[in-house]
Design a protein around this nucleic acid. Structure first.
Lengths: 202, 202
DNA sequence: CCGTTAACGGGACTTCTGTTCCGTTAAGAT
DNA sequence: ATCTTAACGGAACAGAAGTCCCGTTAACGG
């Protein structure tokens, strides 16, 4: 007796199933970047992925579920952090990386869409939080090393320092029509460094 | 000859038309707060507002347009700024106000939904930008007075100081599952003040 | 290599979103 | 107060979104 309440893709995850998944996720990413979350039509995704319409409905069911799976996939590819030797140097490298990602037309649109999905669905939100957790974990050592070097006060919340770098960039992307240029990124890094040095994050 | 390409509500904006608009916007806000953007059904909004389904489709057409109109309405009610006499005091008051708004279940959900709408529609995005422009304009004098008092360096971008306060709060709301407590708000205000004093925003 | 059956995919079917039509109500002008 | 017609609202209609059925394909175990 095989358990019945099992969603498809779990018993035989390899071969065709894996190919379908990656094709669908790629297609979903493209569709999101082009039309945003509101324009995400599962039938359209199936067509782009050259996969049966029924398959997409069966395995993912809703746009939000599809986005959640896409985020789980994105969380696996982490961007390696910098090692410049100074806190400001490392934070600036991080800020510029984030800036470049958000300013890129395809990636920027994709991130916007994914955030939109997370605002309306618990599972997508959880997936998004895991994604950013992974990113912060990758870069957190920059701040920890700064504490060890004596650049930052003992007891600093190092993860919060990393988040302080990204926050203004995302805020600008979402709430203004101002461009995300490199000067903005550098300013974000400097602001985070200044606040951290002042002991705001202890 | 009356011009034909005129959308409804422009020639006779008073009386019934105005009542319909405010009822629909209120209903749209409720629906957004409850089900988020994805669950925003125009038929449902019409039912809540006790208004003809056809009317909603004719005057707004899409969820994004409805959100854009809702934002235009929200932008008119601005929250009065504080006057504590010090930069940190004013920024803290602002941070706590933003925190309270975002942490409130109804308002927080509404803001999330509205941001989601803005990520996928140009008009909604423009309306959102105007909304935040209005908010920043209301609070910008706090930073300007700090410059005049000598608390901040000459040439500081005062609007950017105000934005620096909100950014971490929105970032936390969207990308983490951590609670938006008052300590977080105070930290955001202190970080912005520290960065501004260090001359990051000149 | 072969057998079992998980997962896929095409097509018919159902349900719901959004449009059109047209009669009714009331805003604004005289 | 009266007239014109903008705007509303119910009902019928069209089209798309999503589900179900069932035959086909291929993953995994032996």
């Amino acid at each position: 007796m095989t358990s019945e309440g099992m969603n498809p893709g779990t018993t035989r995850p390899g071969g065709r199933t894996a190919r379908v998944r990656s094709a669908v996720l790629r297609a979903a990413g493209d569709a999101l970047a082009e039309h945003g979350l509101a324009g995400l039509d599962l039938a359209d995704v199936a067509r782009r992925a050259e996969v049966g319409r029924t398959t997409v409905y069966r395995r993912w069911g809703t746009p939000a579920n599809l986005v959640a799976d896409l985020l789980a996939d994105m969380a696996e590819q982490s961007l390696p952090r910098a090692e410049t030797g100074t806190l400001l140097g490392d934070l600036r490298a991080n800020a510029r990386l984030v800036r470049r990602t958000l300013a890129d037309p395809r990636q920027g649109a994709l991130f916007k869409a994914v955030i939109a999905a997370a605002t309306g669905d618990e599972q997508a939100a959880a997936a998004l939080h895991r994604f950013y957790d992974a990113r912060v974990t990758e870069w957190e050592p920059c701040a920890r090393q700064a504490v060890e070097r004596g650049e930052l006060p003992e007891g600093t919340d190092t993860r919060e320092v990393i988040r302080a770098v990204s926050a203004p960039l995302y805020y600008r992307l979402l709430t203004t029509d101002q461009p995300l240029d490199e000067a903005t990124a550098d300013r974000a890094a400097e602001a985070a460094a200044a606040a951290a040095r002042a002991g705001v994050f202890v």
